[in-house]
Each structure stands twice: as structure tokens, then as C-alpha cells.
Computed example of a mutant assay.
Amino acid sequence: MLTRDADAFLGFARHCAADFGPATARAAFLVSPEGFQRAEQSARDNRYMAAAERFDADAALAEHRQLHSALAQDVPVIAFAGNPATPDAVFPNNVFATTPGQLIVGRMRHPVRQREAERPDIRRYFTDVMGYAERDLSGQPHPCELTGSLVIDRARGLGFCGLSERCDEAGAALMHEAFGLRATLMFPLAPGEYHTNVLLAVLAGRAALICPAGFADPRIPGVIAELYGDLAVSLNVNEQAAFAGNAIALSERRVWMSEAASTALTAGHRRQLQEGAGFAVGCVPLAALEHGGGSLRCCVAEIF
């Protein structure tokens, strides 16, 4: 099912068992922020990006090393070298994603990011070393920025796809098919929002972080929340601005977010995650990297 009909999606999705696949990744990869600087093309439709003078490449590299070390507590994590010619490459999850045995390469909107998809080292790591098949969407005309635009409940095979300049309906259909999902709900993001994963995180298939203000249709957050019940955490605008929605669970026991996001969490929302969902809240200082317009989840490409 691929639909914009929230009622039809909810009617189908609430009956989907958590037997589609593993709820969390078995490993992850990062791309180092070499030459980290403002990408002017990406800044056209990313309101979260800071002014050029606020970028600090050395600080970003130091934070990235801490991120690598922290995430490695939960799963094996590898890091590919960055390239100053691709300053947004620190956010590889928009370009590369996996399902078991398959690498998916997305089609980025901006040319500066389209260059990332051409990297032979990342492609060959998966095809030659890991033995994965490759599904290459990068050459077709429809933007589909993978797990930036499409948030996936891997346990139940459900997709939540925000439509914006970074992903149109045709791109959503291509991703739905490439990931082999049971059902995908499409919906427009609010004006000024660019990626769904800044507004929504599904954590190990059992909990969700939702930023209602980021959705154009105010009913959509409620539909998503119905699927996760008491473990749906509705974040306020301050938590959203601090990237609390840009989080990830790489294991059943912990959710990772930036230090700023963790600080912004209300006491009640922290209790929902810790006592309700059973997640420890891990955090990493990422102030320099967040000037690039994304946060912790954006930095992490999952390996299933």
C-alpha cells in the first residue's frame, strides 16, 4: 500500500505485526566531515543550516570522532573518509541506505549532493566486500532522499514519507518499492521543512518521537501516534528546534540524540522514553555539526 489516505493507511498498518525484519540495524556507517563548510545549494531549502561564518571544521571533526566512539557501544560502526568537494557528505543516510543484502542509492535534489552518490568506495564496499546487490535510484529524475525523507518502522515494514522539494510522489513510490515496504503513508511537510527525519523518529519499532508542528496536515501526527500509543512522544517546538526528533535507536536498549536535543527534552518526555519505552537516552555534543542543518540521526547510515 502506497497512499496519502491516512485512514486507509491506519486501518492497514494497525494490523501489521512486528515480523517484517529486525527492528534495529546490525551495524552503521558514517562519513567524516572533511572540509566541513556551508553548502549554499543545500541552504536554499534547509532553514536549520547556520551562516557560513559559524562553521568550524576542526570542531566538527572532533565531534564526529566522539559520535563514532559513542555509537560503537551499541553496534559496529565504520567511517568513510570525507571530501571537501562534498561538504554535506557528513549526512550519508540521505544518499545510501540498506535492506538485508541490498544497497539503495538515492537521488538527491542538489547537484552538490548528487556527487556523493557517485562515490565508488562506498558502493564497492557493499557490493564487493559485503556482497550486497545494488539498487541505484540516483540516475532517474525524481528526488528521493532515502531515510531523510522516508522514516521507516523496520519491524513492521511501514514507511512515513514527507513530501517536499527533497522528495516527490514518484520518488516516494520508488523508495517504497526499493525498501519492499508493506505500506507507506505520504504527506506534505509544513512550509520550511525539508526532511521527515528531523520531525519523526521510530525507535526500535516500539516508540516514536513526533514533532507535530512540522507536518502540513495536523491530523498526520495523530495518525502516527495511534500506532505507538503511550510510547508516542509528542515533542514541542523547542524540542524540535533542538533536533530532538532527529534521534535513532541502534539497539533495543538506547536512543541516541545530540546533547542539545537531550537537554531540551522535558522531564515528562524523558520519562516516556526511559520508563515507558525502556530506552536509556544517550547523547553526544554535536553543536558544530548541527550548523550543517542536521543532527545525530542524519549522520548515521544504517546497515541491515
Rank of each mutant, 00 (worst) to 15 (best):
I220C: 01
F279I: 11
P100G: 09
L265M: 12
A85L: 15
L199R: 12
R219M: 11
G294L: 13
A242H: 08
I78V: 15
D153W: 11
Q41E: 15
N83I: 00
P33R: 10
A183N: 12
Q66A: 11
N46M: 07
A62I: 05
P100R: 06
T184D: 03
A8I: 07
E275G: 08
L150K: 09
F243I: 02
F160K: 02
I220L: 06
P141A: 13
N46I: 02
R135A: 10
T99L: 14
F187C: 01
P143W: 04
R4M: 05
L231Y: 00
L174K: 01
D168S: 06
A249I: 14
R38G: 05
E34P: 03
R54T: 13
A204V: 09
L189W: 00
C211W: 03
A170C: 04
S69R: 14
A208F: 05
A8C: 08
V95T: 15
R119K: 09
A28S: 01
W256A: 04
V223S: 00
R115P: 03
I303E: 13
Q140R: 14
E118F: 04
L189C: 02
G222A: 07
H291I: 05
L265T: 12
T98W: 11
L163C: 04
F304T: 01
I248E: 04
N238Y: 04
D230G: 08
T127S: 15
P285M: 05
D121N: 03
R38F: 04
R124G: 06
R109C: 00
H291D: 12
R14N: 03
A8D: 03
I210G: 02
V105M: 07
Q140Y: 02
G214L: 08
Q102H: 13
R271D: 12
G245E: 03
V77M: 13
R38M: 07
A267W: 00
Y228T: 13
A85G: 14
T3H: 06
E169H: 00
A288S: 14
A241I: 03
P141T: 11
F304Q: 14
L146E: 06
C167F: 08
A81Y: 04
A85D: 15
